[in-house]
Design a protein around this nucleic acid. Sequence first.
RNA 1: GCGGCCGUAGUCUAGCCUGGUAGGACGUCAGCCUGCCACGCUGAGGGCCCGGGUUCAAAUCCCGGCGGCCGCACCA
Length: 582
Amino acid sequence: MSKPDKYQKIVELAKRRGFFWPSYEIYGSEAGFLDYGPLGALMKRKLEQKWVDWFVRREGLMLIDTAVVAPEIVFQASGHTTHFTDPVASCKSCGRKWRADHLLEEQAGVSGEGLSLRELESLLAKHEVRCPECGGELEPPQVFNELFKTTIGPYAEHVGYCRPETAQGMFVNFKRLNDLARGRLPFGAAQVGRCLRNEISPRQGPIRLREFTIMEFEFFFNPKNPECKKLKEVEGEKIRLLTEELIRRQVEEPVEVTVAEALDKGYIKAEWNAYFMARAKQFLNQLGVPDENQYFREKLPNERAHYSAQTYDQVVKLSRWGYVEVSGHAWRTDYDLRMHMAYSGEDLRVYLPYPEPKKIKRKNLKPDKAEIGKAFKDRAALVLRLLELTPAEEVAEALSSEGVYRLRGDGETYEIKPGQVSVVEEEVELKGERLLPSVVEPSFGLDRMLYVVLEYAYSEREGRVVLKLPRDLAPIEAAVFPLMTKDDLPEKAREIRQSLLNYGFNVEYDEGGSIGRRYARMDEAGTPYTITIDYQTLEDDTVTLRDRDTWKQVRIKAGRLPQTLESLLKGEIEFEEAGAPL
RNA sequence: GCGGCCGUAGUCUAGCCUGGUAGGACGUCAGCCUGCCACGCUGAGGGCCCGGGUUCAAAUCCCGGCGGCCGCACCA
């Protein structure tokens, strides 16, 4: 890393040309925060717009926009207040901080998972766990929660948190969304918005931020009818997977399979997840990332979030850090809806009518509310709601074989004993059933994706930078130059620029410096087309149009510029088709 | 958060060891020049990350903070 690598060059370019820079620079900056400049802000919008077009419009999702701050209960239900927290113990002598549960496991061989702080503290003391670095004594463990905490209104006790993902906005609004989908499955809801995570140590510029923008959607489908009708469109598409099994065998090279094979072989568990992974791969192709520089890496169970049954990260090769995650594809099952249902008391199940009513015998759980109340006190209401969602057979079997049923909830496990529930058999006629949809969640990091685009677009030619941005993401779409700053050429150029502005294009005008310098400036900003007004323009109203990537030029009628530019920017025509070559 | 290296105009950088308040390159701006690819001429504006200490005097030495990069940890 002695000579500037691509990352350094891009960061330098980003600052110089106004794509992005560190926030609060005049106060010495604050790690983990990034500001977008004029070019970056425009490009970010275009990238978001492209994502919305690619997923929301084409896949028929509902785009919503929900609040950033949420009352505490929302993240208690989602599990973030417990799972987004790490127990940290600092060393009394050297001050280093360690994951308390990890130390316990390493030094005492005792799993620290799910333990309370007090339990951790006593176990650490009992096993005489010391600082691995200096052997010093440890302070009692404390929690570090990555949620940004705040208070709502003037009451300190009204705690709120900033969202670490937009997902909960989709889940808490599920009833309305389901209603707007007219009760049918499958459907999806999407959102693009700012999220905050109080990272312990953000690094790597735009790659890991404390405040960032997520583009994600929750796709709800019937768990009893999980097939993806659109699979046909992508089943032959090749995707590269680094599965859990390969990772365990320390294989580093992903396998290339078709989407159909990935499902047949069980690499991907949910069809909808596979479908959207294929779409995500195509999306990255459109951003300039070829197949050989991206793949999907399965998250190991211990890396996976608490809600996830299977997660693949889409990773892209970057010059500096190797493969970096740009999107996550989690199968969240019904975890979130189940938890919000339990916490809010709202029925979030979807009613799905049967074609024919069914008469069936079934087992039903009858909880003894008095017993449960005594046993679980203030958690009793929650336990009752969770029990409602639990299959009776599962409870019956656990009770008869083990004498206890372990009900898993918000990071805690509740032990249900025989006297607390009874299982009865009854015959009922069912016209349909209510069930919680299963959810797949494709989630994209907008900021790092923007960096990825810049890195893949970056090129140098004859000692100058040419930013070969995808045409539809270029912040400046075209620029108009007068060849000379005399003989009415500037006036004509301004006129043409104004007319293109009126057509809706983002067009710059530049008359400073030599013509070559002006081309170079626009190449560096990633502007795909430049229009030059010369003496011939004054005679026959034609202009030259220059292509950023090839530096080739064609001559066309000024009047045809709007349609031609539009077709070029959309990629409908090749540059050579735009006019007569020079 | 720990350790190592680092922080000088918009950007890159010289100066720091051996204290005497900064020099360059590119870019920007103004003007000239310029008949299609940053390369001509003239001029202008712009800087020592922040705070404290040592000293007659600090970009320079010392301490602390903040930030950056790398390694460790962290990244549900």
